[in-house]
């Protein structure tokens, strides 16, 4: 707990004329939770009664007075997820992690929470791990999700995971296949989509080999550029709810044949991706 960090947060918020919630948000972002000492400093410097500060801190779900584990697993129990068997998923997480909802593992690695409704009911049951959405989750996937959180959601490398296999995908809007067998990359049919950036619109072909980042495109994409991806059949933009955990660019969802969703980062050069298969053994 260092007072200077709290003072700096206070100074910035006073300058922006921000309220108590904004101050607490910044403290939480800094420490991962709201340390008591920090709240006492806030009370002393702002004149808000400590009572009110604790009131606000305990009222809103996004604040925590306890340190949370390194990874936060949140299972949605909204009605739509509930009827699609989310409670069993919660129980499976409790069993495998050896903790109850609201608790943190003794090694501080995982905290388990449930949420009321995460606003993605069409994809339920939803599990969010460190801000990443997993859709249509069932108990058989719990182990894999925990393992993935542990290895780092973004650090699933081909080598460590030995997960090199071709995926066949379709548009997440119209479900038309995106595979192009006339254009091979890595020896496999490529995934063909339309992209746009700046004023340019053209085709983009991605390797269908999970773990390979080889692409070719009609126009050279400048480094770090975020591109918009469209289905060449229904022309809808492929845009998901999640953002890349590495670079915060939007993730592009595609449906995997056999069940599940793969999401790739829309930023050139970023290797953020997320594979969420169901019913498929990895």
């Amino acid at each position: 707990m260092s007072a200077p960090a709290v003072l700096k947060i206070l100074e910035k918020n006073v300058k922006e004329d921000a309220g108590l919630i904004a101050i607490l948000e910044d403290i939480q972002a800094n420490y991962g939770y709201l340390p008591k000492e920090a709240l006492e400093i806030v009370a002393e410097k702002t004149g808000y009664p400590l009572l009110d500060i604790f009131g606000v801190a305990t009222f809103y779900k996004s604040f925590s007075l306890k340190p949370r584990g390194e990874h936060l697993i949140s299972v949605c129990l909204g009605t739509a997820c509930h009827v699609r068997s989310a409670p069993v998923v919660v129980e499976e997480f409790e069993r495998q992690l050896g903790i109850k909802v609201g608790e943190t593992t003794p090694d501080n690695e995982f905290s388990l929470e449930t949420a009321a409704c995460l606003g993605a009911c069409a994809l339920g049951p939803i599990v969010v791990v460190d801000g990443r959405y997993f859709s249509n989750v069932d108990t058989s996937e719990v182990k894999r999700i925990i393992k993935k959180a542990r290895t780092g959601l973004d650090k699933v490398t081909v080598k460590a995971d030995q997960r090199i296999f071709p995926v066949e995908v379709s548009c997440s809007k119209c479900n038309h296949s995106l595979m192009d067998s006339s254009h091979l990359i890595d020896g496999y049919p490529s995934i063909k989509v339309t992209m746009s950036f700046s004023d340019l619109h053209g085709w983009l072909a991605l390797s269908s080999l999970y773990g390979s980042y080889n692409v070719s495109s009609e126009y050279e994409i400048p480094g770090e550029m975020i591109v918009n991806i469209f289905c060449p059949h229904c022309h809808a933009e492929l845009l998901g709810a999640a953002d890349c955990a590495d670079c915060s660019a939007p993730m592009i969802p595609m449906i995997v044949r056999g069940g599940g969703v793969v999401q790739i980062c829309s930023r050139k050069g970023c290797k953020g991706h997320m594979l969420d298969l169901n019913g498929v053994n990895l």
Partner: peptide, 21 residues
């Protein structure tokens, strides 16, 4: 900040003012 009640219009206003909703 994550509280269902803040969707209720008057709770929303108290929350917007920086208080518990």
């Amino acid at each position: 900040g994550g509280a269902y009640i803040c969707g209720e219009e008057t709770a929303l206003l108290t929350s917007l003012e920086g208080n518990q909703g």
